[in-house]
Every structure is written in C-alpha cells, then in structure tokens.
C-alpha cells in the first residue's frame, strides 16, 4: 500500500521533471518547448499545492488540533513559490532568458529545501497520525 509520504514524494519528482525541462529549453532559447514544459509544471505544481492545502493539511490539523504549526510554515512557503512562479511567467512572456534562469535557480532551491522538509519531517508525521491514509490518497488529484 502506498504511504502518503511515497505518494506526495512522487508528485515532487514529477514537478521536478517539467521544471528542469522548461529551464533547459529556456537555456537553449527553444521558447515553444519552454512554454509547453512550463505550463505542465505550473499545472502540476498548483494541483500538488491544492492537494496539500485542501486535503492533507486540513486532515493533519484536525487530528493534531494545531493549524499554526508546521502546516502554517508550509502554507507560507507555498505563497512564496507562487509569487516566484508569477515572476517567471512574466520573464517567459518577455522571452527574457537571463531573468528567467536567475529566478529559476532561486525557485529551484526554494522548492527543493521545501520538499526536503516535507519529505523528511511532515509527510512521515502525517503517515503516523492519519489512520485512513488510503482513503485520503483516494481523494487527491493525480498528476
């Protein structure tokens, strides 16, 4: 049976793939490919964040009775990522490769350290406290 940690970690890796492909296409000035990969990334990222904010975090908060703890930190980081994604959208629209790559370097590290914290601390905690993890996964959107 897939654990919450495994399911959500797979979604992180999936986002990495389109993110890296978009970055590589921008570096090669292949703008059509970059737009297509970037769109895939944006859709996947938003679905993943929604999975967490609408399903996983509320379930965790309800059981632990704490909505100002780790999930609040993660929600704040989601907003930071969304702000950066919006800046990168603008850079891509303007075909400004230098700005895009500078921002993507920053977002990539922001995202990776966020993922690491979720994968190493938060997801294992959710697996421990949520009894019906299979039921919860059933309600999540696949990428």
């Amino acid at each position: 049976m897939t654990s919450i940690a495994e399911y959500m970690t797979t979604q992180h890796r999936c986002c990495d793939d389109s993110f890296v492909a978009a970055e590589s296409a921008v570096s090669d000035k292949n703008w059509d490919e970059a737009r297509s990969q970037w769109q895939t990334f944006c859709n996947d990222l938003e679905s993943h964040l929604q999975n967490e904010e609408q399903q996983l975090f509320p379930a965790f908060e309800q059981i632990t009775g704490n909505s100002a703890g780790p999930t609040a930190v993660m929600r704040m980081e989601h907003e930071q990522m969304r702000a950066m994604v919006s800046d990168m959208n603008d850079a891509l629209e303007q075909q400004n490769g230098e700005t895009y790559l500078g921002l993507s370097e920053t977002l990539m590290i922001l995202m990776q350290q966020h993922n690491m914290k979720e994968e190493q601390i938060l997801y294992p905690m959710t697996d421990r406290v949520i009894a019906d993890s299979a039921g919860l996964i059933e309600g999540l959107t696949d990428l």
């Binding site: 632990t64 703890g69 780790p70 930190v73 993660m74 914290k117 601390i121 938060l122 905690m125």
Partner: peptide, 9 residues
Amino acid sequence: MNTAGLSLD
C-alpha cells in the same frame, strides 16, 4: 512533535 527544523525562524 518536534517541528523546529521546518521553520526558518
């Protein structure tokens, strides 16, 4: 539950 590592504070 120790979650101090999650916070940049």
